[in-house]
Simulated scan of single mutants.
Amino acid sequence: MLRRLFSAEPLTAPGTVVRLDPHESHHARHVLRLKTGARVAVFDGAGRQFAATVERFERRRLAIVLDKPLPGPPETPIPVVLYLAVTKGAAFHSALQRAVELGAAEIIPFAAERSVATVRAGAGLDRKMERWRQILLAATKQSGRNRLTPIVPPCSFESAVQRPDPRAIRLCCAPDPHTPRLSEVLRAAKPSAAQSLAIMIGPEGGLTDDEVALAHRSGWQSVSLGPRTLRVETAAAAALTLLLAALQEI
């Protein structure tokens, strides 16, 4: 299996020389220990992937020559957008990884009333966003996908539920024994006829009654993932898996 590298430059045609950015070049040279002449796969995050050959190292940049296009796994026929409550550290990072592996088309982080992690604008947020993008990139490489999953800066719960998307089926996970199961709702909703699907995972303390009410007024439907209390990263993976099953993608 070819080692996979990411090119921030768009990939165009066989024979083109592409220079990777310093971060990816350092990874290729000092972590993967690639040498001149090594065969690799390179993708640009926009759906294109090529077989390529390492041509030379130029200071902090790695130059590779594109060979032939390589196919990648198809994306889901309907975009699935994950609205994910921000949690601390490893749990959120794990949720991001699983979301990419399971084909999420976009990730919308948000802060709910019971969120423990704080999100403030400034240098700290910039560092978090860069860390999150690196996690998404690593998961994209591992999963074989050729499209990067975009992630936007965290927003408030109110902004998240009121994002305009009238063509989407919007489902909000709420741990309420009277809420219908996600699997049941998907069977009745016929998601394959939708323009997009949105699934919202709240913080580990759950969404408040007021937040659930606001979600309902904004066009979201409450669904349950079953009687057990799940961690955020587990809930995200379970919900996305059920959505893929409903789309016959898994």
Rank of each mutant, 00 (worst) to 15 (best):
H178F: 08
I151L: 12
I169F: 02
G144K: 13
T149Q: 10
P164Q: 03
Q142Y: 11
T140N: 10
A160L: 02
R181S: 15
T179Q: 14
E184P: 06
C172W: 14
C173V: 15
V161G: 06
R145W: 09
A188L: 12
L125D: 12
R187Q: 15
R181Q: 11
R167D: 14
R147D: 04
K190C: 11
L125H: 06
Q134M: 14
K141H: 05
V152Y: 14
P175G: 01
A189G: 00
D165M: 12
P191N: 12
L186G: 03
P175F: 01
S143M: 09
D176A: 10
N146L: 14
K190A: 14
P166N: 05
K128N: 11
P150S: 05
V185S: 05
M129F: 02
A188C: 04
P154Q: 12
P166F: 02
Q162V: 02
P164D: 11
A138Q: 04
S156R: 06
G144P: 14
E184M: 08
F157E: 01
T140P: 11
P154C: 05
P164G: 01
M129P: 02
L148N: 12
R133N: 09
G144A: 03
M129R: 07
P175N: 07
P191M: 01
I151P: 03
R127W: 10
L171H: 08
R163Y: 09
C173W: 00
A160Y: 09
G144R: 10
V161R: 00
R145D: 05
M129N: 04
A189C: 13
P164C: 06
K128V: 06
N146D: 09
P191Q: 09
T179G: 06
T140D: 13
A188K: 08
W132R: 01
P164F: 01
P177R: 01
R163T: 08
E130W: 01
T179K: 03
I135W: 13
S156L: 13
K190D: 15
P175Q: 00
P153L: 05
R145S: 07
G144C: 11
D165R: 13
R145C: 02
P153K: 07
W132S: 15
F157C: 03
E184I: 02
T149C: 14
V185R: 15
P175T: 00
V185P: 06
A160W: 12
S159F: 09
R163A: 13
L182Y: 01
D176V: 02
